[in-house]
Write a protein that binds this DNA or RNA. Structure first.
Lengths: 188, 188
DNA sequence: GTAAAATATGACCGATCGTTCTATTTTGAT
DNA sequence: ATCAAAATAGAACGATCGGTCATATTTTAC
């Protein structure tokens, strides 16, 4: 009852890693199994379908994002400090990427490098299904969290009272996206 | 000698349309052939490999971008007017997308909707090959064009003299990216 | 230690992938 | 109308896809 959970976690971790390189839709059960020294059917037994695995991968990514970005921000004082912490943690996530946090593997960091959500947004914006639904929800929550952090800054008197917090969230993610493209694609 | 060129163009158009929905890497020769009422081998005969087709698709996208975005900007007066025209044409491209310009098909517009380059950037940022190389080049050229337009604005005295034109280009594409994500994924 | 339950295997399914080959049809110039 | 060239079709290839199933192995609880 315990071994299975461990294997399942390994599978999801491996799939997330692979998704960062070739896209979630291109993660293949056979290749993934080989990479993990598992049989294809042994791997598949942990999920009811490939889509279920994809959703599990997305959930894992969300968990990591919470640990790496949301957590540090919440540990900072409300208002401007928290907003700054959020921005920095986000940029770190965008550029360095979300490793699994279980031991730091520089090679894995480079591969996983970059925000998986950006890739997923593009990959699924025209591909209906459970994965897309989950991606949409995660992005909604993220933007609303950023807006909330900005709103606190206003409430604390750190930011202008007439600040459009939605607009702030909008530009916040825009900067992140460009950052990633600049770094990963243009290597700058 | 003439019919072949027409067919080839149809194939590339169809592939570009399909790439907007499922990603360029997921464009499949069989499905594409069926969609165009061609045999798979008849289609394939126009390209030496699938990769060659992909590169042709990217080139077509670049052509359309030039017609739809670069062209209108060049028709405006140097400096701020051109920069504004560029921004507007870019946002239009980002949201409405780049139809083939040969007759306006609202349905196709919606499907093709959104900037194909954003999707390609994500799809190929970790996938070495000729397609990635072409994507990188197109993005480099685009950013440098934006920076150039901003630089003219400075030269004409329309913008502050100490304006960091590279930074402007950086934020320019960031806004575009967020715009697209907001519209296509979050439907807002 | 052993039986039951959980986990992994290997063989196999039909479908589709990109690609190659050899016909066959269509085209355009004479 | 003829005929070579150009364009398309059809069948087949090995590989791989997601998925199933009966079986074997390992883990866990008693």
């Amino acid at each position: 009852m315990r071994k299975g959970q461990k294997t399942r976690r390994d599978i999801v971790d491996g799939a997330l890693d692979m998704a960062g390189q070739v896209g979630l839709e291109h993660v293949t059960l056979g290749v993934l199994a080989t990479e993990l020294d598992l049989s294809k059917s042994g791997l598949f037994a942990h999920f009811e379908s490939k889509e279920a695995l994809q959703v599990a991968v997305l959930e894992e990514a969300v968990d990591r994002f919470k640990v790496r970005v949301i957590g540090p921000a919440l540990r900072a004082a409300r208002g401007e400090p928290r907003f700054r912490a959020l921005f920095e943690a986000y940029l770190e996530w965008m550029t360095v990427g979300g490793g699994d946090g279980r031991g730091f593997d520089a090679e894995a960091e480079r591969r996983t490098g970059g925000c998986i959500f950006m890739a997923l947004s593009q990959e699924y914006d025209d591909r209906p299904g459970k994965v897309r639904d989950a991606v949409v929800q995660s992005q909604r929550e993220w933007r609303s969290f950023v807006a909330g952090a900005a709103r606190m800054g206003v409430a604390e008197g750190h930011f202008r009272a007439d600040l459009d917090v939605e607009q702030v969230a909008f530009e916040f993610v825009g900067i992140g996206m460009t950052c990633q493209q600049t770094r990963k694609l243009l290597d700058d």
